[in-house]
Design a protein around this nucleic acid. Sequence first.
DNA 1: CGAATAGTGTCTGTTAGACATTATCGA
DNA 2: TCGATAATGTCTAACAGACACTATTCG
Lengths: 225, 225
Amino acid sequence: MHETPASLICTVDVVLLTLQEGALAVLLQRREREPFKAAPALPGGYIHVDEDAGAAAAAVRVLRDKTGIVSPYLEQLATFSGPVRDPRGWSVSIVYYALLPGNALPADALLAPVDRLPQLPFDHAAIVARAVDRVRTKSQYSSLPVYLCGERFTLPQLQGVYEAVLGEPVNKVSFRRKVEELGMLEPIEGELSSGAANRPAQLYRLRKAFRQTLSITGRGLNGRS
Amino acid sequence: MHETPASLICTVDVVLLTLQEGALAVLLQRREREPFKAAPALPGGYIHVDEDAGAAAAAVRVLRDKTGIVSPYLEQLATFSGPVRDPRGWSVSIVYYALLPGNALPADALLAPVDRLPQLPFDHAAIVARAVDRVRTKSQYSSLPVYLCGERFTLPQLQGVYEAVLGEPVNKVSFRRKVEELGMLEPIEGELSSGAANRPAQLYRLRKAFRQTLSITGRGLNGRS
DNA sequence: CGAATAGTGTCTGTTAGACATTATCGA
DNA sequence: TCGATAATGTCTAACAGACACTATTCG
């Protein structure tokens, strides 16, 4: 019937999540142009058909050019679309999400805790909510949260990250059993004393084979629904 | 920097999966126009910015107009994009997947078993693979496969559907425990004798509250990876 | 030594799967 | 009665969570 490719707006947006003071936070950026110029929003931009090899590549480029960040973990979240989400008209936004340790961000980065977001333009609030939901769900049965840690970390630190993401305490013994069985971490010889008045914790790092992958556990870390 | 909305092709494709002779099969359709005219492919089409309320609505419309089918379950799978997947140029395809019982399809529907697909145009083979993977994964811990059954079905039938989707046998006792605990089915008073020379099985149907939702189990049906 | 946190051993309740038993149909 | 499949009871092994105990640091 129709053949009109029709004019619609197609963009890529990135939800970059990190931990700030023990809570998930999202990277925002003041918009450089209309609509909603100067308002804080998710970093995003048009696909460049002359240089992007795909939407994922466009997301990498947008994040790099707008914030200077290159994230080791980037995954497609979903595509949001419709006639009303953008005042310019019918629009499509292919959304990716990324995870980074808090200290990997520039000091002047604009971060907002995900449960106390400012007013966001477009449907960006809904997009952030979906990203958070995805990360929480996926963290229940995978090693996803390691991307929120730095290169080297202790098991108590990692457990804290899981607890921050899941929003509930995690059983220490079960947690360590799972980590052991996933086999994705290797101990480093140096330890972490940090001067604390207690027994120092063993430092670990991701095994090379798990740098770009996730490790999946059959039953989940905690028996949540 | 750039401001070019750039010309790209934006379409919606639908992976409709069903069971045929105890195996997952995908609905294909001969393409009505170039490129790949007359080749079997996933049903798809352009978004109509003047009538579609979103990509999901476009998927519903495409499926209805091209095949007459209205599926009770339709979910976004992912968005595929890039410069080479469509000979017409840089393209974006927002892909949805649907599930239907085999007998709900018109008799002349073109079905192909997912593990013996014909040559498909574009990246449709990869898209089907992703859809199958999603359905299998999601079936491990949810009630998704009920959408592959008709209105009324017995527990042995439903178990058979799970086994067909997962590709492995399912423990009968555990299966029935899970179904019970999910609480999404209700027995119908009539039974199914079907004239077989054995004890008839109880017929069940989905409870109203679960018509549009999935029921999620914490640990999965079988302790797969 | 005492406080504090890391790391481990062990017990217990829950859950999944195997197996056996009973139930109910047609022939 | 027999064959076949539905439905259920029960035992066991695996696993998660709770708790307690040991280890190691600083002050």
